[in-house]
Design a protein around this nucleic acid. Structure first.
Lengths: 341, 341
DNA sequence: ACCATGACTGCAAGCGTTTCCACAGGTCAG
DNA sequence: CTGACCTGTGGAAACGCTTGCAGTCATGGT
């Protein structure tokens, strides 16, 4: 293992100059820089991150905390964050904490706080005030995506308003018997999102003077297969059926469409389905949905952090904790139409 | 930020003793240990990872290199690796290099080699001999999953044999007009898998004396939507149709089933479809497939590395580079049957 | 001809741990 | 009673860089 010392010797320069040359700092003559670079290349020298982090205080490493890596939204965010960080020369440390709160705590205590991360991105994770304070106390900027993080910057979509919009789309088509497929209660603990979307749905229904039937408020785990099972239960209930379903995610909307097909229901003729996300698979099913660019949200979060870090806001100046709304769009495809006569 | 020095002062011990006490080393009296621990807790002390890594040479950090995070196989592996590492107190650094080889190189040079990783897991990535040698030269164990890594340990399934098995399943049912849906040529660069699976298919066909029609050898990008489009093309060709399709992944098999439904073809009555993976969604479609436990493969890879690291095989003793085959099982559901009369 | 200026460079002091080593007491067999 | 040993402990040397500081040497204005 060649160290910087070896490079210095080989190049006939001092350690200090080599360090400056290789890290692209100013005040190094072109000649020295070239000398250092060739020597480093010849020796296959790569600086030790630990040593340089220790000495400089910057780690070039951002932590990403996710509840899942399988669900579309999260893997999309991950993709956006990852690409942005890689291009910027930053490492991405992933904490896939799962839905269980158990692991969460240990992640926070044992990992996040160990000053090895320059910043943290938390997705759909409601951190307690204490937890946020701990992180900010260490002078680590935090950005939350899709979750409300008091005191930290946040990127999110207007979940409540968009749910209203989706519901209104169905109402305007003339539907009155509308079901809502939301997230499982268990998912509502950390990730308050299901509740918020559900509230938007209820508000829109109330505003339109429509009644909400409890038996048409069903839940699933945000996966296609989970929603498929729930939707089969909904559609097979034997009593009157809804003419439209608003699913809290595209994956769940797709599960609903698959269930409808199994029952011989034509979408949208017999059943309208609207989702929310912008899943790539939506096109195959002609799914009407609200497009939120999850990948873009991840990329934006990463960019924001990098700017903060590069701006050198060296310590704790968390800047103004901005709360920005990410743009979305209603994409009308062929899964929604007027209700059957 | 409290340092170990502060803890030592508060506990009335020396830095050395505190360090030993907190990291659970021997030769510390019970009293001193308790003293150190309470002092550390009171000060909210957390050791600096960089400093301790620098001093001890162990980073407690494993790198995972993936070509994608969206496709089922990869996110499943990721999940397995992540859970195992988190439980062991290790960090996971994720390199989502994408399908483009461009980013790959930079990841290798700029990231992997910076001695900040204790080990590397590479999924479906064919590293060149040089690249492997570089890593091994740094004394970092590597485990490859699903890809042939000369010189490194590997976990994989018998892709060629399993493809044969899948194809034979169709042949034994009486099918003779069998199509194969493989990965896009672009994906075959790094990730030779499509070619290997295709070879298995061809071998089985040849052994059975069946002819392989070039126009029934189609490809897609391993996603449902991509396979859906390709399968529509296949099924809509107007000429004679295949009676069965072997798709190189479950996601592609599902895309095929969706396309078949669009054409009014009943699965399995009019068209048998077999996949390969064990995707959770397979159940919804009654998909016959070969179950490979991707999550388990990831977990196993992580466990193997942890053992190697903990065994203290301190440097370069790469152990015997084992190449182990992960167990799989043929899961027969309802997407395959005898061909139409 | 002289000094201020600025571009380069090297020395050495950290960065915050881990760990080698020496050393102080106490235990125990001979 | 003594030397061999073991358990705990603290001092201090790494670990491999970054960076403040001071010093060297041309340069150019006056």
């Amino acid at each position: 293992m060649a160290g910087i010392k070896d490079v210095a010797d080989r190049a006939g320069l001092s350690i200090a100059t080599v360090s400056r040359a290789l890290s692209g700092k100013a005040n190094v003559s072109a000649k020295s820089r070239k000398l250092a670079k060739t020597a480093a290349a010849e020796l296959g020298f790569v600086p030790s991150y630990h040593a340089s982090s220790l000495a400089s205080g910057r780690n070039h490493n951002v932590g990403l905390v996710l509840p899942s890596v399988h669900r579309w939204y999260f893997s999309s965010v991950l993709e956006g964050v990852s690409a942005t960080l890689l291009d910027a020369g930053y490492d991405l440390t992933l904490y896939n904490v799962g839905d269980q709160a158990v692991r969460r705590e240990s992640v926070l205590n044992d990992f996040l706080l160990r000053k090895r991360l320059d910043a943290v991105i938390a997705v759909a994770l409601v951190l307690t005030d204490d937890e946020i304070q701990q992180l900010l106390a260490i002078h680590r900027p935090i950005v939350g995506i899709g979750g409300a993080l008091a005191g930290a910057s946040t990127i999110r979509i207007n979940d409540s308003g968009l749910s209203r919009m989706a519901t209104n789309h169905l109402i305007q088509l003339g539907h009155t018997r509308i079901a809502h497929l939301t997230g499982d209660p268990a998912l509502n603990q950390d990730f308050k999102l299901p509740g918020i979307r559900q509230a938007g749905f209820e508000a829109a229904m109330k505003d339109a003077g429509l009644s909400i039937r409890p038996e048409w408020q069903i839940s699933a785990d945000f996966t296609i297969q989970g929603a498929y099972a729930s939707a089969r239960r909904l559609l097979g209930m034997g009593t009157e059926r809804p003419t439209a379903v608003f699913a809290a995610s595209d994956e769940m909307a797709i599960g609903t469409i698959l269930a409808a097909r199994d029952f011989g229901l034509r979408v949208p003729h017999d059943l309208s389905v609207i989702g929310m996300d912008g899943h790539e698979l939506g096109e195959v099913f002609g799914l009407t949905t609200i497009n939120q660019d999850a990948r873009g949200q991840g990329a934006l979060a990463a960019r924001l952090l990098l700017e903060t870090l590069d701006a050198g806001t060296p310590a704790g100046n968390d800047g103004a904790a901005t709360d920005r709304e990410y743009p979305t769009e209603l994409v009308i495809r062929t899964s929604t139409a007027v209700p059957p006569a």
